[in-house]
Design a protein around this nucleic acid. Structure first.
Lengths: 105, 105
DNA sequence: TTTTTACCAAACCATATGGTTGACTATATA
DNA sequence: TATATAGTCAACCATATGGTTTGGTAAAAA
């Protein structure tokens, strides 16, 4: 799978987007991440592994806890892609929307 | 699945991103869409159905051909989300990147 | 030292995904 | 009319995904 494939696939799961969002507020332990979800810690651990494999976050073992934080570099790549994407599409969408809705200008 | 789930899932397949890209250049018949790919027309037809079910494109039957075009409204929704997303994250990413790389500023 | 905590690993399960083939329908074209 | 073309549908297959449970290990706390 390409990088873009995995990034989008990762973002297509609501649990992972939530983990993503949580980590924006800062580092968290695996059990902290798992707590809000109505599923086993093992399941959350798998999601974290998916994100980690995609390079979207980093894991650090400290004693018996595992600490997760966003990987700024990988995030930057994703952000850059979105920037490019978003820079290109909107006019197209808007043009198309104007055309379709017949609103002219 | 939520709307966001399906949109990201749709974008996570390279074939569908290519179809997506092709349709940005304008309407196309199903067989036109299928031609560049080393897979059966049935497979491409399935991808098109996935995109259609997600509301990302529209199908129109004209005689024996099926014409596809982007759905401007659904596209606008996706674009809006990306805009919000991208408006929110970059500073965060940049802050995080600065912090991690220790570049101060 | 014993017990609890935090996590991993393996096996398993149901469903989704991305592809195939073959048979079919409907429309153009010769 | 006969044939080729565009596309669908249904059945099938292999693999991926998202979850579970059970049993383990290592570290912290009692």
């Amino acid at each position: 799978m390409s990088n873009l494939d995995t990034t989008f696939a990762d973002l297509s799961d609501v649990t992972r987007r939530a983990i993503f969002g949580r980590l924006m507020q800062g580092e968290a332990r695996l059990s902290d991440l798992a707590a809000p979800f109505d599923m086993s810690q093992t399941a959350v651990s798998k999601h974290v592994r998916v994100l980690s494999d995609a390079g979207l976050l980093e894991l650090e073992k400290r004693g018996r806890t595992r600490h997760c934080r966003l990987n700024a570099h990988a995030m930057k790549d994703a952000s850059d892609w979105l920037t490019d994407y978003q820079g290109f599409w909107p006019q197209q969408f808007n043009n198309l929307a104007r055309h379709v809705s017949g609103q002219g200008e």
